[in-house]
Design a protein around this nucleic acid. Structure first.
Lengths: 329, 329
DNA sequence: AAAACAGTTGGAAGCGGTTCCACAAACTGA
DNA sequence: TCAGTTTGTGGAACCGCTTCCAACTGTTTT
């Protein structure tokens, strides 16, 4: 096995307390002694055991993230932003994906035992479980998820951007809307729905047709697209709750011989990479995915260090990205 | 703080050894005693400290993964496959992304101290560092990366698929090839290059023009595409080392008023989601991304548990995916 | 009935660090 | 010169668990 602090102490001819102080720069150690310790540590190729340190310090120096999946760019980007900041703050990131898992509560509890705090995305762990974690005093940040008492929330703006998007589409003359997303697509999707409904209502236009999805991915969007676009009463525009759904709709339209945006307009949400490369390029709402992750990491750090004790909600701004699929150009 | 094993022992009126045995089912404990312990643990809401368990067991029950980035679907998909299997094997996954980081060696060493073994992707940590880790006896699996003595390698087939791809393109009548990838694009890209070169050489066609990229993403492909396609001596086909690069090339071609595949053919590699949704749909080589991750997780588990001590190389098959961007249809 | 035995159990020794506390040595100021 | 710091250091007490070992109980074997 590798060298322990006792080996270093013996080699340097000092006590383990002095080794610890010399290596981590705490307490005062005579320069000459420090150098002797450093040399001994170097010679033995000593690296402090992370477990020993954590046990003694009473902290893991690690955070957990619970997300549904990394299929699709959204969660991956958020995770990336999160990991970057967490790493800067000296914390490792332990991941847990829940999609397709059966024993989610057990996995989440296990994860909670390995970290100082965790970030939980929407559509992963049930709220009861989150409440249970919060109750044990585990710092928790909720990402794009309905609030739970005692936990931070980080999310991006939805309702207003949805309203702006809908108003833009109304400006194109579209009147018959379909919204591909619900039901219970999670807090964020619900807010987008509300925003669209509000805009149409204000304009005196009939409420959008709500189209339920089994999942938020291309296949699901494709199936829904075929279903919605094939009927006689085809909508003017399909507002999709996610870009991937919209990509599936674009494919469905192509297969049905429909031209987007002439025959039907399509919009997405998130502004993933593929959105700009689709044909036609997708009009969508850009979410600051990296910033969401970064914001969650900072919020969690504040809760863990105790820099802040009161839970807080952080809402990041989004941006309407007009391309061609709405009817522009 | 939360209850410890001592609290449970006291409440149940037994020793901590008995509590440990009762809870983890090791050793023999009288049924009546076990039930008393279980009840006490339940009442105190006891969860064994992960740090205490790990320190005593001498293992972390966690693995690390080092990857460049999660921008783009490739690494995300592999990571997903990895996490799924690791989780099944009872191991948590700690992630570390290196792109844009300055202190990579320190970060990797720190990570190594928190895990029982790690997976290192290509283009992240320098080989010297990996060799150092392997030398300390840390089980290591290399993913799509040049081998290091003592470490497992998991990768997917490159040279043969590249040859097949090139032969298909030759069948379309293309003769002037450009390869967007090198130099030193990593072991996998080098193999793809070799495969293409071999096919052209066998057909008596001039060797491909090698086009260096600053990075493997859409922007980089876009810039390279503008450069290569704008000249007088435009190639017949641009073989890209990655789908994202190819997507950038498609955009460049569109901007230059070129029709793909009539004026120039384009191919990618990986078969990411966007490849099928691009216009024209991208001919590419599908890598089994999830399986790569899953294979790495299993290989690492074997090394950690000692089920296998000799390093091994696992090469997964790929599949040529013919769509329209090569000239088909 | 004595001896061998299987089943239970608690004490204590780690695992590898951090840090409190006591103590000695060297320094400060009057 | 002497009391009162300041500095440097080691011993030992944790942190929370697993597991070896010895002891103790109640059977079963001879």
């Amino acid at each position: 096995m590798s060298a322990t602090i006792y080996d270093v102490a013996q080699r340097a001819g000092v006590g383990i307390a002095t080794v610890s102080r010399a290596l981590r720069g705490s307490g005062s150690v005579r320069t000459e002694t420090r150098e002797r310790v450093l040399r001994a540590a170097e010679e033995l190729n000593f690296t402090p055991s992370r477990l020993g340190v954590s046990l003694a310090e009473g902290r893991h120096a690690a955070n957990g993230v619970v997300f549904p999946t990394l299929s699709g760019p959204y969660y991956a980007e958020v995770l990336l932003g999160y990991e970057e900041v967490a790493s800067e703050l000296g914390r490792s990131v332990i991941i847990l994906s829940t999609q397709g898992r059966s024993a989610v509560p057990e996995l989440v509890r296990d994860l909670a035992g390995r970290v100082d705090g965790l970030v939980v995305f929407g559509r992963t762990a049930p709220s009861g479980l989150v409440a249970e974690l919060v109750a044990t005093g585990k710092p928790t940040v909720l990402l794009t998820r309905t609030p739970v008492a005692g936990a931070d929330v980080v999310t991006s703006e939805n309702a207003t951007s949805a309203r702006l998007l809908a108003e833009h589409l109304l400006g194109h003359g579209h009147r018959r809307f379909a919204f591909l997303g619900g039901p219970s697509g999670g807090a964020d999707v619900d807010e987008r729905w509300s925003g669209v409904v509000a805009a149409l209502s204000a304009a005196g236009v009939p409420a959008p047709q709500g189209v339920a999805l089994e999942a938020y991915n291309v296949e699901s969007g494709h199936r829904a697209g075929l279903r919605v676009l094939d009927g006689a009463s085809r909508p003017d525009v399909l507002v999709c709750a996610q870009d991937e759904v919209a990509l599936g709709v674009l494919r469905a339209a192509r297969e049905l011989g429909l031209d987007v945006p002439r025959d039907v307009a399509v919009t997405g949400w998130d502004d993933i990479m593929a959105a700009g490369h689709a044909w036609p390029p997708l009009t969508t709402v850009r979410q600051p995915m990296r910033s969401l992750g970064a914001g969650a990491a900072r919020a969690l750090d504040e809760l863990i260090t105790g820099a802040r004790t009161e839970p807080r909600t952080l809402i990041l701004p989004t941006e309407l990205v007009i391309r061609a699929s709405c009817g522009c150009d």
